[in-house]
């Protein structure tokens, strides 16, 4: 395996909890790998499965979607909708031969800066083990 491989990760974070949590990691000067590039949405309920597919198509090795803890959604239950859509995303990825480990949906509150940093760190480590994205070449390839 290529040990110099630096996975590209797209983070899609909700404005109220996770984006603020990621800001808190910064305010607290907690270091985490620069591999993740964050895009802000108002709510994880906004995350259209096509956003995730687009990211992989654009060369992401992993996609992290992060929202408020269940019950804490600023819009009642957008995070629950994101959770219900997750299996669809995973299924679409499976059909495209992309390993399910490359897509992650997590909950990070506005006070969990440390947790956010840890999640990114773990995801980078996992993706390094998994190697670069090879569409159609994933472990669960439909064949």
């Amino acid at each position: 395996m290529n040990t110099n491989f630096e996975p590209k990760i797209l983070g899609i974070l909700c404005n109220w909890c996770s984006y603020t949590g990621a800001d808190l990691a910064g305010i607290s000067r907690i270091k985490y790998p620069a591999n993740i590039k964050i895009v802000r949405v108002m709510c994880t309920g906004r995350v259209d499965p096509t956003f995730v597919l687009k990211a992989f198509q654009q060369g992401a090795d992993g996609v992290l979607v992060s929202g408020c803890h269940p019950g804490d959604c600023h819009y009642v239950d957008g995070n629950v909708k994101a959770m219900r859509r997750a299996p669809l995303v995973t299924e679409l990825l499976r059909q495209m031969g992309i390993e399910k480990e490359r897509f992650k949906l997590v909950w990070v509150s506005a006070s969990e800066g440390e947790k956010f940093a840890k999640i990114v760190e773990d995801m980078v480590a996992d993706l390094k083990k998994l190697g670069p994205l090879a569409p159609g070449g994933g472990a669960e390839k439909n064949a």
Partner: peptide, 22 residues
Amino acid sequence: KGCGSCAAGCPSNAIVVSHFSN
């Protein structure tokens, strides 16, 4: 309130969320 849950679920992409469009 602009959460965009409807847009993410719209199968015909008819819904546009201002400032957070597709």
